[in-house]
Nucleic acid binder design. Structure first.
Lengths: 361, 361
DNA sequence: CTGAAAGCGCTTACAG
DNA sequence: CTGAAAGCGCTTACAG
């Protein structure tokens, strides 16, 4: 009796199976089905037989066996904090760039999610145990004693908050972004410009403060100390808290006419605190953010912000990491700096009339 | 001359290396270092020697070799559209749940990013080639002819937009969420409630419309056809476009007092269109969304929405997928339905005074 | 143009 | 309690 389906094995077909059905060796099947390079060695007739057999047997390469033989997982890791509210947009943009480039190079991407860099730095090491060929660190804030990373794994960082020895960092010209933003506000006619800075001790926030100060100095404007606040984190809640507290403490004082915030999250928090105090953006105060995250476009009013090419940075990280894995990169390759760009939206405008006062209670 | 560092090999240490240094077999080293189960067979003294040798040699298991021997990659795949603006928040919540559960089970998570389900369905199949043990489909909208998925890979779907044979679907009671939301608006005193529906032909949007209609019917309120709009997609732009067009077409007509939108993105778009027309939320119109995404909390005013336990759903997907991989799940396991919950914020309030009219030009 | 052999580094029975 | 052998499915020299 004919049993056409019966010879389909319970386990997935291997190259040996394909070879057997096609009447050739497993090696020939390998050349045709998996090895692009050597496949030219096989005659067209044989190749056709092999392809046919593979189709019938539903052959699929075994990724593990291939990885073992090639000493290469074809898998890149991405380590990031992705459960914090404010990192989300940032991460997704970067991640989309990583995924696109990884797919273009036929690499898998596996994600290692940290709760925070301080506590999870050690866990990170266990991730470098051979399941990935290299690792991209997204906005790492590694404690100094963990900065020396496992030498057997190639790393690339994006927006690292401290230097990591031997790791190429992909960053942006944040100081310039802040400078251009504040310069624009000044060009609009603003003279009292507040800055709500990000958490202290990190490279990014510090660069943004520097750009802010430099722009004021360039316009020969003073920087009153009471106009520089610090938010505890990049989260909306903390921006809200910083702004609200300042408004309480300065009831009756002159309001700034513009507020430049260290990121969009803080800016949105500040807008919420201003709304609570009965102040309107941009009529009473202009507000600007940084990152041009999705949040900047969905908040009402839409937020003027500083765009960073996050997606392109994610893709570049993949390119550099692959080059490093293949030892095509000199050990001392310098950092890569991407440009930034001010994006104007409705949350900023030239000041209206005379300076306003902070509403009292 | 003493050369303590010299015997460190260029290639990573293997179990055989560890065994050699410790004076035992590779198998004993395997039992101690990798196999939790069988490790009890080794004496404490030997175990200590092996551990010491592994430390000195910086032994790390080779993931590929282990996967090959175990016939198991210990890797789960996640397939989703993640470059569309509006899926981002939704995806990240689900993904965080997936990552947490995967980490708890010591599984890696690799992401397969689709541009859209229609075009990439075939590419999806190549992803099921042995590099993953199973795949989670996030909000799939597979064309009917692709609904039959490769039989060698176990699947779980979340919020599937059409039935997939043999795939357990994790979903929420969307109809009830819509019903409860509209019921709440009615309880606030709203009588003219608009609905901006999501894209047609998908399960989710249809369920939300049904809940809306059922709530109106339950309150014996009519559903004027002109109060049900359809947004082309879940994106903010399309919500904006739908609302704006309606406002233009209905200048001078009575405004609804509340608008229930099929998701937060559409709701935010609607709020932007209302703002453009000089209408204020919630004083002139209440607006409610669905999903309770991060966007709902960062938009101004913060959005009343329907929360779905996305994170928990992501975790559950991992649990079910692992059970299916281990053949611990009967083939005909039914869908899993999670509850939803209305979250009230400032974008909704009881109507103020008499009905307003749509501003003319 | 094609094949037989060895090896990637691990684990799982099977012996002792 | 411990070890020698075989095998997971692929690829890479090396022969013919």
């Amino acid at each position: 009796m004919p049993t056409p389906k019966k010879n389909r094995p319970a386990r997935p077909a291997t190259l040996a199976d394909v070879g057997r059905v096609a009447g050739v060796s497993a090696m020939a099947a390998s050349a045709v089905l998996n090895g692009a390079r050597t496949s030219s060695r096989i005659s067209d007739e044989t190749r056709a037989r092999i392809l046919k057999a593979a189709g019938e047997l539903e052959y699929r390469p075994n990724a593990a066996a291939r990885a073992l033989a090639n000493r290469r997982m074809d898998t890149l890791g991405v380590a990031a904090v992705i459960d914090g509210a404010e990192v989300n947009h940032y991460f997704l943009d970067v991640f989309n760039g990583v995924l696109a480039a990884a797919a273009a190079h036929e690499q898998n991407t596996t994600v290692f999610s940290l709760h925070n860099w301080g506590d999870d730095a050690r866990r990170l090491r266990t991730f470098c145990d051979g399941r990935i060929d290299g690792l991209i660190l997204v906005a790492p804030t590694l404690p100094a004693e963990e900065a020396v990373l496992p030498s057997h794994t190639p790393f690339i960082s994006i927006h690292a908050n401290a230097r990591l020895p031997g790791v190429i960092n992909i960053e942006t010209d944040e100081e310039r972004g802040a400078f251009e933003m504040v310069k624009l506000l000044i060009a609009h006619g603003h003279r009292r410009v507040m800055h709500i800075a990000g958490p202290t001790g990190q490279l990014g926030p510090e660069r943004r403060v520097r750009g802010y100060r430099r722009a004021l100095a360039a316009a020969k404007l003073p920087t009153p100390p009471e106009l520089v606040l610090v938010s505890k984190s990049f989260a909306t809640e903390d921006g809200f808290a910083a702004m609200r507290e300042w408004l309480r403490a300065h009831a009756g004082d002159r309001l700034p006419t513009a507020i430049f915030c260290a990121n969009d999250g803080i800016a949105i928090g500040a807008m919420q605190a201003l709304a609570e105090a009965g102040l309107r953006v941009p009529d009473d105060v202009s507000v600007a953010g940084f990152d041009d995250s999705l949040a900047a476009r969905i908040c009402v009013p839409q937020l003027t912000s500083v765009r960073q090419p996050l997606r392109a940075m994610g893709s570049r990280a993949v390119e550099l990491l692959l080059a490093r894995i293949d030892h095509k990169l000199p050990a001392s390759t310098p950092s890569v700096v991407f440009p930034v760009e001010v994006v104007s939206r409705v949350s900023t405008r030239p000041p209206l009339g005379p300076d306003r006062l902070v509403p009292g209670r």
